[in-house]
Write a protein that binds this DNA or RNA. Structure first.
Length: 752
DNA sequence: GACCTGCTGCGGCTTG
C-alpha cells in the first residue's frame, strides 16, 4: 500500500462515490493520510457496493487494486452478522495471501470483520477455528479450496451460506492455465452447492483483450461483466539492445569439456572455461548495475546461477561486498526472502538475477533498471518485467543482451540469419506499439477434468453421470466437452480404475481414484517432480530434480555460490554440500513447448526487409543486424519462402510456433526428416520433395488435425493426461499446439 | 528452447 496517491482528482476523498463508503471505512482512509482515492478505487465503489454484477479491476502493479476491491466490500460487510464466511479472496501465492492478510487486517479490525487465511502453512488450529465459527473474509489458495471441497464437502453449505462476493487476485496468472480452469470449476461447483450465483471481482495487471478476461471470470456470461480500467499511461522508456559475438561452437565445446569442474580454484577469466561472451555480458552488467538496485532476467535457472556466480566473483575481485543474488523456483524460501528483503530495504546496493519469479506478485520496491539477458519468452512477459522499473515518475530503463554465433564457412542458414537478435528487435517493436500476446485459449483441459470429476465424487460421496456432466461440462468450465465425449472419457477412467459404477448407476471412486484423492498431492492441478533437498551446515539451500546425477565429489554452483557434494542420502533425498572453490552450473529439468505468436514472426519478416537501424541498438547489434539483413537479401527471402542450401531445404512460413509445428508434422507425415529453429523449418532432401509434400497437404484440404498428432512422441503433458483416452488427448493437443488452417495458408504462400 | 504455483492426516515423539 502506498501513501502517495497519484490521482489528479482533487475531490477524490470527498467525492460522491467516497461518501457511499461506510463511515468507519472513510475514517480508515483518512487515517492512512490519503488525500484522495485513486481512479480505480473511485471507479470500483459503485459496482461493488451494488453487488449484482461481476467486475474486473485492471491496473498496473502497486496501483491500489486490493483496496479498490476491499473498501466497498468492507463497507458491505461492516454490519454483517457472523455464522458464515462473507467474502472469499483467492490468491495464487501463499506469500501474496500473507501480504494481503497483513494489509486487510488493519482495515478490518476497526470494522469488526474477522480476516482468516487458509493455505498449507497455516496451522490446523486456525483452520479448525474458522470451521467452528465461520465469519468475515477468507483468504485462500485454489489448492486449499480444493481440499475444502474434498474434506469438508458436507459442511460447505454451512460455511458459505452467507457468501456475498468472491475476489480473484492476479487474474492474468490464472487465465488459460490448468490451475485457472480448476479455479473456475471450484467456483462453479460452489454456486451449485449454494444454489445461487455469487458476484465475482477479478483483479489484474492491464490485459490486452478484456473480453477474454471477462469470459474467464464468468464462463458463458463475459458480456455482462463490468470492466474498470486504470487510465494511467506508460511513462518514458530508455532502451538499449546490446549485441555480442559468441565464439565458434567447437571452441565453446572445448571450453566446457568434462574436466572443467575438477579444475580447482577458478583463476582469472576465461581460464576456468567459461565462454568469453558470457563474461563480456557479465562485465557490462557489473559495470552498469554496480552500486544501484536492479533486476536481471536471465530466462533459465541455469543462466541465473551462471550470472549470479560470475557477478559475485567480480565483486570479490574488485574487493567489494557482494551485490548480486540469484532468485529462482528451486532456491529455498529462506534464500529467496533474504534476497527480496535486501533489495526492498535499499540500505545497500543490491541486484537480483532472476527467472520469472520476480515478474509479479512480490513487492520488491522500485528498481533503477531492468536487464534482459537473451530473447524474452514473450512480449507480454517483457512488458510485465518492464513494469518493475521506473515507478517513481522517472523513466523506465531496459537493457537487453543478445549473443549471436560467430559465423564460419559452414554456419547453417538460420544461424546466419541471427534469428534471436531479429526476434528481439521484432518484440521490442511490438512492445513499443503497445501490442502483446493474448493469454492461451482453446485447450480442453482434460487433465483438470479428471481431477474435478474425482473431486466432485469425493465431495458428495458419489454422483450420477448425468449430474456430473451438467455440473462440470454443460454449464461449467468444460463446456467444450460434448456429451458423447464425456461418455467415452468416463469409460476410459473406468477402464483405468479411477472410477467405478454402482448398480444404480452412481459413479464412485475406483481403486486407483481412491488412492489419488486420498493423497495431498491431489489438490494441485499441476504436476510436480521428485526432488533432492540441498543442505549445507544444517541449512536448506533449495532443491534439485532427482534425475540430476549428483554423487560425492561433484562440484556445483547453486544459490550463486560454489559447492562440493559431501554426501548423498538417497533414502531421505538429501544432498549435503560444503563450500568449494570450484563449481559448475547444474542442469535443471525442462519441459518447454514454445509459443511464439504469429504476429512476432510477421514482425520479424518486416525487420529483415527494412533498411533502418533502430536507434536503441549498440554498435555490435547494428553490425549483427546488418549481417542478418545481408543474408536475407542474398537469399532473396523477401521474394521466396523456400530455398535449397547444400543437402538441406529451408522453409520460411513467417508464422508462429503452432503453424511451424503443424507444418513440421505434415512434412514428417510424408516421410521427410524435419528440424525447426525458430521461424525456419530445415528439411533433409530435395526442394522438389518438400514442394510435393506441401502440395499434397494443400490438396488434401483441411486434414483432421488429430491425425497429425500420430507423429508426436508424447502428448501426455499435463498431470492426469495418462488417464485420458488417446483420441481425446489428441484433440486437446491439436487445440493447444497446432494450427491447421494457418499451416494450410502458409503452405499455399510458400508454394506461390 | 522455459518458467512458476501448491498440499493433509496421522503416528511418534516430547513436554506440561
Amino acid at each position: 500500500m502506498s501513501s502517495h496517491p497519484s490521482s489528479s482528482d482533487p475531490s477524490g476523498a470527498t467525492s460522491s462515490a467516497f461518501q457511499r463508503l461506510h463511515a468507519q471505512v472513510q475514517r480508515w482512509v483518512w487515517t492512512q493520510g490519503w488525500k484522495e482515492l485513486r481512479g480505480i478505487q473511485e471507479a470500483a465503489i459503485a459496482p461493488i457496493l451494488e453487488g449484482t454484477h461481476d467486475v474486473i479491476l485492471s491496473a498496473s502493479t502497486a496501483s491500489g487494486k486490493t483496496e479498490a476491491a476491499f473498501l466497498p466490500i468492507c463497507s458491505r460487510l461492516a454490519d454483517a452478522a457472523g455464522g458464515s464466511v462473507r467474502a472469499i479472496y483467492v490468491g495464487p501465492l501463499k506469500a501474496l495471501i500473507n501480504d494481503q492478510f497483513e494489509r486487510l487486517d488493519g482495515l478490518c479490525t476497526g470494522l469488526g470483520i474477522p480476516v482468516h487465511r487458509w493455505h498449507g502453512d497455516v496451522s490446523q488450529g486456525h483452520k479448525a477455528q474458522l470451521l467452528k465459527s465461520p465469519a468475515g473474509i477468507l483468504l485462500i489458495t485454489p489448492e486449499s479450496l480444493e481440499a475444502l471441497f474434498i474434506r469438508q464437502g458436507s459442511s460447505l453449505v454451512g460455511l458459505f451460506s452467507g457468501l456475498e462476493v468472491i475476489v480473484i487476485d492476479e487474474l492474468h496468472a490464472f487465465i488459460g492455465t490448468e490451475r485457472g480452469c480448476q479455479l473456475q470449476s471450484l467456483l462453479h461447483r460452489l454456486e451449485l452447492t449454494l444454489r445461487r450465483t455469487v458476484p465475482r471481482v477479478g483483479l489484474s495487471a492491464t490485459l490486452g483483450d478484456m473480453s477474454l478476461a471477462a469470459e474467464f471470470i464468468r464462463p458463458g456470461g463475459g458480456a455482462k461483466v463490468q470492466l474498470c480500467n486504470s487510465t494511467a499511461g506508460g511513462g518514458e522508456l530508455l532502451l538499449q539492445l546490446r549485441g555480442y559475438r559468441r565464439r565458434a561452437p567447437d571452441a565453446r565445446q572445448l571450453a566446457s569439456s568434462e574436466d572443467d569442474s575438477n579444475r580447482g580454484p577458478g583463476g582469472p577469466e576465461p581460464a576456468d572455461g567459461r565462454p568469453e561472451d558470457e563474461h563480456d555480458v557479465g562485465a557490462h552488467l557489473f559495470k552498469t548495475l554496480r552500486g544501484t538496485h536492479n533486476l536481471v532476467f536471465a530466462n533459465s535457472r541455469a543462466n541465473v546461477e551462471l550470472y549470479a556466480d560470475l557477478l559475485r566473483r567480480m565483486c570479490e575481485e574488485a574487493r567489494l561486498p557482494n551485490e548480486f543474488f540469484p532468485h529462482h523456483g528451486n532456491l529455498s524460501k529462506e534464500l529467496r526472502e533474504e534476497a527480496e528483503s535486501a533489495l526492498k530495504a535499499k540500505q545497500r546496493p543490491v541486484s537480483l538475477v532472476c527467472t520469472t519469479t520476480l515478474e509479479m506478485g512480490i513487492d520488491v520496491g522500485a528498481v533503477q533498471s531492468i536487464a534482459q539477458v537473451g530473447v524474452p519468452p514473450s512480449v507480454a512477459s517483457l512488458r510485465q518485467r518492464l513494469g518493475r522499473s521506473g515507478r517513481k515518475g522517472g523513466p523506465a530503463v531496459l537493457r537487453m543482451y543478445l549473443q549471436e554465433a560467430e559465423l564460419t564457412s559452414t554456419s547453417p542458414l538460420p544461424d546466419q540469419l541471427r534469428v534471436r537478435l531479429v526476434q528481439s528487435v521484432a518484440m521490442l517493436d511490438l512492445l513499443l506499439t503497445n501490442w502483446f500476446e493474448p493469454p492461451a485459449s482453446g485447450a480442453y483441459h482434460f487433465s483438470t477434468l479428471v481431477q474435478q470429476l474425482l473431486s466432485l465424487i469425493a465431495q458428495h460421496g458419489g454422483v450420477k453421470a448425468g449430474e456430473a456432466f451438467l455440473a462440470l461440462c454443460h454449464q461449467g468450465p468444460f463446456a467444450r466437452v460434448a456429451r458423447h465425449d464425456f461418455a467415452s472419457f468416463l469409460r476410459g477412467l473406468g477402464q483405468r480404475e479411477l472410477i467405478s459404477q454402482s448398480s444404480d448407476g452412481t459413479l464412485l471412486l475406483g481403486r486407483v481414484g481412491e488412492r489419488l484423492v486420498n493423497h495431498y498431492s491431489f489438490y494441485a492441478a499441476f504436476a510436480s517432480v521428485e526432488e533432492f533437498r540441498l543442505v549445507s551446515g544444517g541449512r536448506t539451500l533449495g532443491t534439485m530434480p532427482i534425475d540430476q546425477p549428483l554423487f560425492v565429489g561433484t562440484y556445483l554452483i547453486f544459490g550463486g555460490r560454489r559447492w562440493r557434494v559431501l554426501a548423498v542420502q538417497g533414502d531421505e533425498k538429501v544432498v549435503e554440500l560444503e563450500p568449494a572453490p570450484a563449481g559448475r552450473v547444474p542442469m535443471f529439468e525442462s519441459t518447454g513447448v514454445g509459443g511464439v505468436h504469429d504476429r512476432v514472426r510477421e514482425q520479424m519478416r518486416s525487420v529483415y526487409a527494412s533498411d533502418t537501424l533502430p536507434r536503441y541498438l549498440d554498435a555490435r547489434a547494428q553490425e549483427l543486424l546488418t549481417e542478418a539483413r545481408a543474408t536475407f537479401r542474398r537469399w532473396r527471402l523477401s521474394e521466396r519462402a523456400i530455398v535449397a542450401s547444400g543437402r538441406q531445404v529451408h522453409v520460411f512460413p513467417w508464422a508462429g510456433d503452432a503453424v511451424v509445428h503443424t507444418l513440421a508434422l505434415a512434412l514428417r507425415a510424408h516421410g521427410l526428416a524435419v528440424e525447426t529453429l525458430g521461424p525456419v523449418l530445415s528439411v533433409e532432401g530435395q526442394q522438389s520433395d518438400v514442394e510435393s509434400a506441401l502440395r499434397a497437404l494443400v490438396a488434401a484440404g483441411e486434414p483432421r488435425a488429430e491425425s497429425l498428432t500420430r507423429y508426436v512422441a508424447n502428448m501426455a503433458l499435463e498431470k492426469h493426461d495418462g488417464f485420458v483416452p488417446e483420441e481425446l488427448l489428441a484433440r486437446d493437443y491439436a487445440a493447444r499446439y497446432l494450427d491447421v488452417q494457418g499451416a494450410l495458408r502458409a503452405a499455399q504462400q510458400v508454394l506461390q
